[in-house]
Amino acid sequence: MDLSALRVEEVQNVINAMQKILECPICLELIKEPVSTKCDHIFCKFCMLKLLNQKKGPSQCPLCKNDITKRSLQESTRFSQLVEELLKIICAFQLDTGLEYANSYNFAKKENNSPEHLKDEVSIIQSMGYRNRAKRLLQSEPENPSLQETSLSVQLSNLGTVRTLRTKQRIQPQKTSVYIELGSDSSEDTVNKATYCSVGDQELLQITPQGTRDEISLDSAKKAACEFSETDVTNTEHHQPSNNDLNTTEKRAAERHPEKYQGSSVSNLHVEPCGTNTHASSLQHENSSLLLTKDRMNVEKAEFCNKSKQPGLARSQHNRWAGSKETCNDRRTPSTEKKVDLNADPLCERKEWNKQKLPCSENPRDTEDVPWITLNSSIQKVNEWFSRSDELLGSDDSHDGESESNAKVADVLDVLNEVDEYSGSSEKIDLLASDPHEALICKSERVHSKSVESNIEDKIFGKTYRKKASLPNLSHVTENLIIGAFVTEPQIIQERPLTNKLKRKRRPTSGL
């Protein structure tokens, strides 16, 4: 017993010596996670971090007073192994002897410093981030199933929210409404489509400006004509009531908005009720001829604005009016007729031209339509002016008669200019590109209106002035400009410049 007691005391002394060697000089306990400095002193990692955080910048070693920084600290694995072995020896000594260790306080702390507990403390002390800490805590505590279930439920809930957000973003663009038309193969669909197009076009005519009305009406008319041609002859009974509906809707729209509806009346003529396609083609032919005449008058307007600064050229074209007008009339009417003589009366030419125009518009179905009313009214106005011209010709002399006839021709041009508003800008460009020769010939008609105004002003003063002067240069210039014009009389060319000069002198006297 005595020997055993001596041996136990010796073992205890050895353990105490080893414990003092492996103590931390700051906390005076076994080193936890030993860290060595540049001066080869060993301290606990937790104690050194606490010391360095007390001051900004480098701190001093507690043993040798040298500078220490966080970067200079290094882990010493050898001392950590020695500490672990010492703890194992102490545990074995207690089991063999059955005696508690003399320094129970220190031993209890040593026992608490088992490797499992050290790992837990290291995970908390090290600044490795929240995710690494959570992982280490889960690994160190596998015995708690409640914690695992809560963490898994949190992760699953987070994943569910992310997935639901993604699915919502994908589903939202798919919620856009999609309209699908289910059509049938019955023959009544074509008639319904035609009526739908006509009503939609009328609404567009009321909303859209004048520049786009003609294009819309032309497209709708083409669509309706194609649909009529596709149907068989057996379905004509269905077409006639639908066309009557079209007429009623167009008349109502014309009564409500007459000014807006006139812009599309000329282009919509071939959508009118037709028994066969031949009647629609004839109407299209007549409309094309009318559009040609209207576009020519538009060309004359532009030329008149350009040549208004040259009064000499405008005056020299006075007698070329009849010849150029004959050529335009021959090209406007498709019928083959002989040219009228140069010395014939211009009023007779106008009456013949009106007689040619009237039969074209005397179809029984055309008179029933609303768009032809505008053309009939313009023709009636022309006839009224010609009836007035006959009365004026009986009273005035030959020279005054010529000037009045020219004035009436200008009035006719004004009437025809009203129809110019109905034609589109695209048709003007096509006419100029296809028929430049006709445009040059028809330019002379509009330029002549300037000389007509001068004659009217001469009649106000009650006299006409003449001068025997020749202007050969002007006649040559005008002959080169206009290709299809005829030779003019030299006496009238000489008379016109004198009248304008005298007018300039006598205007201030009349004002006084």
Rank of each mutant, 00 (worst) to 15 (best):
S76T: 01
R71V: 01
Q174S: 12
S177V: 05
R166T: 07
Q169W: 14
A134G: 09
S114Y: 13
T190E: 06
E84G: 10
V11R: 00
C47I: 00
V8M: 14
K88H: 11
R166G: 06
L95C: 07
S127Q: 01
K50E: 15
K56T: 03
D2M: 03
E149G: 07
S186P: 07
V162F: 05
S59Q: 15
Y105M: 06
S153A: 03
S123V: 05
I21H: 02
H41K: 00
R170L: 11
N144L: 11
S114V: 04
V35F: 01
L22C: 03
L152I: 13
V122K: 03
K56G: 14
I31L: 11
I125S: 12
K55W: 10
F79C: 08
L28M: 15
E116R: 10
I89Q: 11
L99I: 03
I31C: 15
T164G: 10
N16A: 06
E9T: 00
L22P: 00
P145F: 02
L49I: 07
K175C: 15
I89T: 14
S146K: 06
E121P: 09
A225T: 15
S186I: 04
T167F: 07
T190G: 08
K45N: 11
T167Y: 05
A108T: 13
L49F: 09
A134L: 04
D120S: 05
L28A: 14
N132R: 08
E100Y: 02
Y105K: 02
K135D: 11
S127I: 01
K65C: 14
N144W: 10
I125K: 14
L156P: 15
L99E: 10
Q148S: 08
R71E: 15
E149H: 12
R78K: 09
E111V: 07
L99H: 14
I89P: 01
R166E: 09
K70R: 03
E85V: 03
C44W: 01
A134Q: 01
L137F: 03
N103W: 08
C39P: 00
E29W: 09
L3H: 15
R133F: 00
C39Y: 00
R133K: 07
A253V: 14
T161Y: 08
Y130T: 06
K193M: 15
K119G: 10
